[in-house]
């Protein structure tokens, strides 16, 4: 069971879990395999793994490995 760092916090997932699972767990939203909210609308979230953006279309294909560093970001007030 891989433990990964998401936004500087350790989270443990089941074997075979992917980036989709990481995003679903962090946002508390149910996601489709395409990384879209199951209840429609836009998610407004992006993921970087080891400082590289993982496009939404590839979330389901990227399995989490022990020690992965993920950044999960969204828009906040600013500017």
């Amino acid at each position: 069971m891989p433990t990964v760092r998401i936004n500087d916090e350790n989270v443990t997932f089941n074997e075979g879990a992917t980036v989709v699972d990481a995003v679903a767990q962090t946002t508390g939203r149910e996601l489709t395999a395409e990384g879209k909210p199951a209840d429609g609308g836009r998610l407004g979230v992006a993921v970087a793994l080891a400082e590289e953006v993982v496009p939404r279309s590839r979330w389901a294909g990227v399995e989490l490995s022990e020690g992965d560093q993920l950044e999960i970001v969204t828009a906040v007030q600013g500017g």
Partner: peptide, 21 residues
Amino acid sequence: TTVAMRRYSPETKTSVFSMLE
């Protein structure tokens, strides 16, 4: 309208983005 990009947190959620949309 401008927004900043920050780590997702349960407090901020995606409220600004949803509002602008």
